[in-house]
């Protein structure tokens, strides 16, 4: 479609004189071409949209196909055994699954209350001029690539924990009955706790920014009414804002959880990559993503590769469930606001 032709169509609509000069045959041809181009563009965009759909389908199919050998060999036992022996080709996914869940749990247990408190500060206490800078700073924290967290965790954070927090935990909580096994053993520096804390820092911005957005969406009338009957700021947040924003906050927490579960590089640096389930949080462990990142390129033999892909499939299914639940909850919020 060259510019001259295109102009003629517009001319047709604007100037009557042009109609005379353009022959009817040419006009029909041009219009035909435009109609065809229109149809082609429509189908092109539709194909791209379907392509996005196929992308996810492709991911699922390729993961299932790749993990079949492992599941066929080990069956359901793959999910319930701890052994991971590349030499004898005996694989079980329990240790990585355990590590993934525990590190994510530590991350959420700290990031959710802290994130909510930051959102509380940003929406209720913070002077207006300071809100934007703090908001941007928190979002910058979310934008830092995970490998940066990894290298920082390995060289700065892990040695720091080894010298301060971990000996402290061993000496205090390590003597409390019941939870003592969680904090036993030598302070390695790297390990499950360190990975969980790094994840905390990474998930915090997500929880904060979504909580802030849903806190902001609480109608001012509700808060004013609560202040009107004499509530303190904390009581307004605790009994009015939080219940109102509950669904949205849970959605944000699930999104953060999805990120924590799938996070690879930051965890790989500090987890220690040990295929065992230790009672102690201070001991090295492994997660699904760290196992894949560490071992995939070195995996020899189809069964080994397949076992790693099966781990990927398990991770994908877990995050899929969490993310779908999060989207569903946030969608419900959108509908209520909209």
């Amino acid at each position: 479609m060259d510019p001259a032709r295109r102009r003629s169509v517009v001319d047709v609509a604007l100037q009557e004189g042009a109609m005379v000069s353009v022959e009817a045959g040419t006009r029909a041809r041009v219009l035909d071409r435009l109609r065809l181009g229109d149809l082609a563009f429509r189908h092109l965009t539709r194909a791209a949209a379907v392509g996005v759909l196929l992308l996810l389908t492709g991911v699922i199919i390729s993961l299932v196909a790749g993990s079949l050998p492992a599941f066929r060999t080990f069956g359901f036992e793959f999910l319930t055994t701890e052994r991971w022996n590349p030499v004898t080709e005996k694989f079980g996914a329990l240790a990585p699954i355990y590590g993934t869940l525990i590190t994510s749990f530590i991350a959420m247990a700290i990031a959710v209350p802290v994130g909510l408190m930051i959102a509380f500060f940003l929406t209720e206490l913070c002077p207006a001029w300071l809100r934007r800078p703090i908001g941007i700073a928190i979002e910058l924290l979310a934008g830092i690539p995970s490998i940066i967290y990894g290298i920082w965790g390995l060289f700065v954070f892990a040695p720091f924990l080894q010298e301060t927090l971990q000996p402290f935990l061993i000496n205090t909580l390590g003597n409390v009955p019941v939870i003592a096994p969680l904090f036993s053993g030598p302070p390695y520096g790297i390990g499950m706790l360190t990975a969980g804390l790094i994840l905390t820092i990474m998930v915090l911005p997500f929880v904060t920014s979504i909580s802030r957005d849903v806190f902001d969406a609480v109608p001012a009338v509700l808060k004013e009414a609560a202040y009107g009957v004499g509530c303190t700021t904390w009581e307004v947040v605790r009994y009015v804002v939080l219940p109102y924003a509950r669904v949205g906050v849970i959605g944000g927490v699930m999104l953060g959880l999805g990120r924590a579960l799938g996070e690879t590089m930051a965890v790989t640096f500090v987890i220690g990559n040990a295929h065992r389930i230790s009672a102690s949080l201070l001991a090295p462990g492994t997660t699904i993503s760290a196992t894949i990142a560490n071992e995939f390129t070195e995996a020899v033999g189809d069964l080994y590769t397949s076992a790693l892909i099966a781990l990927g499939l398990i991770l994908f299914v877990i995050t899929l469930i969490v993310l779908a639940a999060a989207r569903y909850l946030l969608l419900r919020i959108d509908r209520r606001i909209g």
Binding site: A49, S62, L63, A293, F316
Partner: peptide, 28 residues
């Protein structure tokens, strides 16, 4: 219908673990 399905799928792809994407491309 297609758009709302793609929207949902796209949101999931948006936050899917990137290591899984690596596995997918490795396979295909």
């Amino acid at each position: 219908r297609l758009s709302s399905v793609v929207r949902f799928i796209n949101d999931i792809l948006l936050s899917a673990p990137s290591i899984v994407v690596g596995l997918f491309i490795y396979e295909v």
